[in-house]
Structures are given as C-alpha cells and as structure tokens.
Simulated assay, not measured.
Amino acid sequence: MATTYRRHTLNNTPLRLADGGHSPRLVVTEHRAEEAVDHVIDLGPDVYRTAQEAAQAAMEAGVQWVDSRLGPLHRHEGFGLETSATSHEKGWTGEVRIYGSSSDTAIFDRRTNYIAAPGVFRDDGQARDAAQKHAIDLIDAGEIEWEDR
C-alpha cells in the first residue's frame, strides 16, 4: 500500500512470515526537483498478528521518519503547520507553511508557500507563536492558497 505524506511516498508491504505473523516493511520515496530517492527504513524485528497491524506500524514509522527529516508539524483541525523564525537587526520574524490533504491516502500532499506572520518580535518563540496563530486564523477563515506544483 502506498500513501503520500508531506510529498514523500510511503510504500509499505507487510511480509508474511512462516509462523503466520507479519513483519512491517517500508520504503520512503523522497521526491526531489529532478529525481526520486528511495530510503529503505529498518523497522526492527517486530512481528504483528495481522498484515493490517504491520502496515499501520510501518505508516507510523514513515511519518516519524519524514517529520524527523523535515521538522515536526503542529496540528490544527485537518492541517499541519510548519513554523520557523528568522533573526533580523530589529528583532525576529515568523513564517509558516500550511499542509493539507487532497484525500485520505494523500496525507499533507498539498502545501502553501511560506507565509510571513505580521510583525517583528522580541525572540524566536514569539515569532513562531505568531506564525502559528496567523496560520490558524487563515485556516479558520478559509483563506488558504495552495502552492502550484
């Protein structure tokens, strides 16, 4: 089964073992500008009773792997929020990228360009908080413009 998450394809095919159990298997395909790179993720020796349980474990591991590479997302309703802060001479500014899903199997496959939060802030924490609040306001108002692919 394949699912997309944050523009990575998570391919999991549980392996049926001789004892009747199932071992999770996962390949994460990272889509870059001009190529696709496959990463085989070692999920350890865990064995599950059903193929569905093994697939679920693989999907959770895939999401964690992608988040560890790209940074964690804050959640609001069905959206993911990626915040960042930048230091300037006069203080800090915050930016956010909003992720959304086009279907149940395409998780966070849509995203916005980076959106600047209004204002300049005393520290990076305030700038990130302002960016997150700004994104939530945009989501709640239905004012999201998705990046062109």
Rank of each mutant, 00 (worst) to 15 (best):
V120D: 04
L70C: 04
A141S: 09
P14L: 04
S68P: 05
A116P: 06
L73C: 15
R16G: 12
N12H: 14
T83Y: 08
R111S: 09
S23N: 01
Y99V: 00
H88Y: 15
F121G: 00
G78P: 04
I139R: 00
L26S: 10
R7N: 04
E60Y: 08
V120P: 04
A58D: 09
A33F: 15
I115H: 03
H22P: 03
L138T: 01
L26W: 05
P72T: 01
T86E: 14
W65A: 04
A36G: 12
N11D: 12
H8R: 13
V63F: 06
S84T: 13
M1A: 11
A36T: 13
R111G: 02
T83D: 07
R75Y: 14
L138E: 05
P45N: 05
G21Q: 14
G71T: 12
V63Y: 08
E145H: 00
D123A: 09
H88N: 13
K90R: 14
D124E: 14
V63E: 06
E147G: 09
L43F: 10
S23G: 00
E35A: 15
D19S: 02
T13V: 12
L26P: 02
S102G: 13
T13P: 00
R16M: 13
G21E: 08
R110V: 03
E30P: 13
L10M: 04
P72N: 09
A57I: 02
H39L: 12
T13C: 15
V47T: 06
G78C: 06
H8Q: 14
D148F: 15
W92L: 13
H76V: 11
D46A: 10
H88S: 12
A130F: 06
R6Y: 09
H31N: 13
A33G: 14
E145M: 00
I98W: 03
G78A: 15
R122C: 00
S102F: 06
H31Y: 10
D46F: 07
V37K: 06
S23Y: 00
Q56V: 08
R16V: 06
I115T: 03
N113F: 02
I107N: 03
R122S: 11
T9N: 11
R7D: 06
E30T: 15
G20F: 09
Q52G: 05
V66E: 08
A36Q: 14
E143N: 10
